[in-house]
Amino acid sequence: MVSAPSPTPEDFHVTATALPEPEHLTAVANRPPLPVKMVIAGGFGVGKTTTVAAISEIEPLTTEASITEVAAGVDDLTHTPHKTTTTVAMDFGCITLDPTLKLYLFGTPGQDRFGFMWDDLVEGALGGLVIVDTRRLDDCFAAVDYFENKGLPFAVGVNVFDGSLGHDLDEVRWALDIGENVPLVLFDARERGSVRDALLVVLELALARAER
């Protein structure tokens, strides 16, 4: 493939990446890096923010964003799920991988409701990491379902809170009802190297898919 395209201002329909920019848009800064993103999901308090903080080069930032939520019930007459838009706090961090490439990590808002849509966050994401606390496995079902449904490459990361895992990994896999094709890893959300390696598992999966 061609080398990675840098993003191009939409204002001019250039396709080459090396074209000089018109003077009126002369950058007051260097060309921005190519931004890529990954999504960190999971139930409440499983360590999403801790994970982002462990590897981000900035303190995790929080912003108000909107997610679409599908109410658990459906309309009796139309069988259409109710959809509402909810404003949530979303946190994120970033890692400058090189001057031309910046990885953003977006933590989904803690969410254990039945239906929710992070389409806004997930659109264009390289992959996702679903964090699981084995004491509350079911908190992650919504995230697993969502990523499966979206076809986003993802791995499940078991955050080992106390350094010990109460279950066998195979038991966890069985309980989560995830296929063999979904990587399941143990990691420590507080350890940068551990978070890095969990993210790499997701990226290797994404690469394997992209190469097919």
Binding site: M1, V2, S3, A4, P5, S6, P7, T8, P9, E10, P32, L34, P35, V36, L97, D98, L101, L103, E123, G124, A125, L126, L200, L203, E204, A206, L207, R209, A210, E211
Partner: peptide, 18 residues
């Protein structure tokens, strides 16, 4: 600078990120 969603499946981008 609007990123393209197709970047996520770009093998060369994924390799660089890895």
């Amino acid at each position: 600078y609007v990123p393209q969603a197709s970047t996520a499946q770009d093998v060369s981008v994924l390799r660089r990120v890895i």
